[in-house]
Write a protein that binds this DNA or RNA. Structure first.
Lengths: 231, 231
DNA sequence: CGGATCGTTGACAGGTATCAATGCTGGTGG
DNA sequence: CCACCAGCATTGATACCTGTCAACGATCCG
């Protein structure tokens, strides 16, 4: 182990212990002892909208904890179009599938300004071998993957387009910590809901006209009752 | 611990060690020592088509390894209809989400004659605490959940109905160990693909007329090239 | 034989994809 | 500062697809 890496690791773990949202992220349950096992550096990353965090075919070396912002997980289809299979937000873990010694299953792309912690897989492996504290948090993340995927399948891919958009808006609003929330591009909405960009645009425009949806500088606002009535 | 439970546990673990498909199921990596930690009985269950393995609101006490057959995981929607979010087959683990101290996320219902091993959650928890051998297999199952969910989202909910049915048939054929495979009811196909029963029926009937699909007593057969061309 | 269940088919209205054109807005370079 | 451009968003027209409601056929079983 080179000295400078050890130093960075130490700095990283120091920061993790002082992390403002520590209770939400992967290392919530770790003890002082555990942090000393982090021999590889944890790095902060800031992403702008459109930045790619990783690609499917890339060598998997890191998992990523999302501290703020939003990431889309994307699968490209043979015909060149794409489908968004999940949205990740604060506290979510991107690249969890690589802990099984396999490749990334998606491309991960930022939708907003997004802050990330980049955690080397080696750290996770070491912690798993020498301490029991990470296991619970990891299982919780796997659980969330399943639960999100099921919600997606059961709620966002059924019914007509109006219903799906209404459900998506309700989902985004519910996920947000404030009243305002981030409204994706029409193309991304289409990729989320398996509808075309044009249809997404038409329905959003209609919701705006009906005042079910308002777009302000801080983000979007919805009339939840009206939208629930549609879905 | 009551003596008869201990006895049953011993019987159960004996059987696990001799299991014909052991390399496929959850206990693949377990050692002799580990099996001695199974203090609760593992029970074989045989299900007929339509039998319910567990329900969403049921108290979670067991996970289930599937030895043969097919199980659908079902979510009921507020309007009374349902959606199939995953199909489980040999080697898959049903109820994995309960290992996180939460409820079952679905109803699990057999589609065919199905053989199951019912494993008490306590066994899993104990093994996890005292031996490292289960961890890898569990992670592999979580991984498969994610990977299947993503395939579902990316391939079975996009494109028109003909494309979706073609993809479903290709998926079912690929999963099967023989050339023949199990063809679900039209209603289940609809619930799998987010289309109506009638549309599923129309397209299956058309595929039959075109000889892309043949139904024999052993199961269904498809013309993979023709169906790939559609999808 | 009658009834239940599932599959198939028809008719039609409504929804959505597709192709195409037109706004709108923010940024860039002259 | 302004004209221009690129990238989205919106809207229109139309053909096609799919949901809906309804009827009929096939098969199994008591």
């Amino acid at each position: 182990m080179e000295p400078d890496l050890v130093n960075k690791a130490w700095n990283g773990s120091e920061k993790c212990q002082r992390c403002r949202i520590r209770e939400l992220v992967l290392f919530a349950d770790l003890q002082q002892d555990d942090f000393e096992q982090l021999h590889h550096p944890i790095v902060d990353i800031e992403l702008a909208p459109g930045d790619t965090l990783y690609k499917e075919q890339q060598k998997p070396e890191f998992v990523f904890t999302i501290r703020s912002g939003m990431i889309k997980l994307v699968r490209y289809l043979p015909n060149g179009s794409y489908r968004i299979v999940r949205l990740l937000q604060q506290g979510d873990l991107a690249g969890i599938e690589t802990l099984n010694n396999t490749a990334y299953l998606h491309h991960a792309i930022a939708l907003q300004d997004t802050s990330i912690c980049r955690i080397p897989i080696e750290n996770i492996d070491q912690l798993n071998q020498h301490s029991p504290h990470l296991y619970k948090q990891l299982t919780a993340r796997w659980h969330r993957v399943q639960s999100d995927a099921d919600i997606w399948l059961a709620e966002l891919t059924v019914g007509n387009s109006k219903k799906r958009i209404a459900n998506l808006l309700l989902y985004l609003a519910q996920q947000s910590s404030t009243e305002h929330f981030f409204l994706p591009h029409r193309e991304d909405m289409g990729a989320l809901l398996a509808i075309t960009t044009e249809t997404a645009s038409r329905i959003i425009a209609e919701f705006k006209r009906l005042k079910y949806l308002q777009v302000e500088s801080q983000g979007a606002l919805i009339d939840k009752d009206k939208l629930k009535h549609i879905s």
